[in-house]
Amino acid sequence: MNQPNNSTGVHATGLMKLWPSQKKNQQDRVGLNNLDLIIPAGKTFGLVGESGSGKSTLALALLRLIKLDAGEVWIDGQAIHALDEKGLRNQRQHMQLIFQNPLAALDPRHSVGDAILEPLVLHNVGTAIQRRQQLQNLFELVGLGRTLASRYPHQLSGGQQQRVMIARALASRPSFLIADEPVSALDAPIQAQILNLLRDLQTELGFTMLFISHDLAVIQFIADRIGVMYHGQLLEQAENNELFSNPCHPYTESLLTAAGASHQSAVVNPGKQQQEINQGPNSCIYAHSCPRVMQKCRHHEPSLRYINKSPPHWVKCLHYEN
């Protein structure tokens, strides 16, 4: 990474995280495996992958909500990995997170207005009167009626709860927002409303976003750049249109087949993420269920190969190494 401390956006290099095993005779589970990520300021990076592939681990790691085994994270020139506790606390207002289940993230005994104001109070932003004003602006911003501020989370519908979560995340004007499956629990019409809202808000406010989803159609709509994650690694990364028109990694292809052909029966390779994968240390992590597996895939670890230099489209697959 060249001079990340001068640049804006999100830069992460060499992220490693092993989840220690619960049992004696089990191996540690791989959370993140030497992962690099760059999100240019003001852009949305879409992260797809099956459950257990480490998507949420990456989200938590970027915000330093879990302790990394190795790696560096820079957000807008700030070295997040090197901050002390006080510095981290101050930095938190610039990086926020939206979760999948708003009901689990909102305090059932606080009105949603109080919930939205809490980050402002914690970070000592403005006076009480200014905060009230800010609350009204936020409600308007996310398309909620002002009268809802005194309601409690359970009195709102799922879509409204998610709007409250977005308002709370945006309250402190973050420059980096992570949305971890924010629409998976919503019905299709509401899902579309929330996605439209998030994209409009980004255009208006210009924050950088990491958007996590297992739904490729959602990712196609929201993301500028897309990374395909498998077992703690990114296997392919490309611009939005490029990834859908020219998928290179066999895993990306199988994901696209599974998602795109909704009226035909698709050939799907079972991902064996949950099971132990017993392979040599030097093999492609996808070799065990790859439809295009070659003999050398089981003995060589693929390195990063560029399909396109600009805009960068790269893939980790031995088929593209000569």
């Binding site: 299709a188 019409p189 899902q191 159609a217 709509f221 859908f244 696209l256």
Partner: peptide
């Protein structure tokens, strides 16, 4: 028709806007 139109689909190019129904059934 509204439900069908709101299903997220993979398009040939990235769409600019998702179709949706206004409002919220549960409200």
């Amino acid at each position: 028709a509204g439900l069908l139109a709101a299903i997220p689909k993979i398009h040939r190019r990235r769409p600019d806007k998702l179709l949706s129904l206004p409002g919220d059934a549960s409200l």
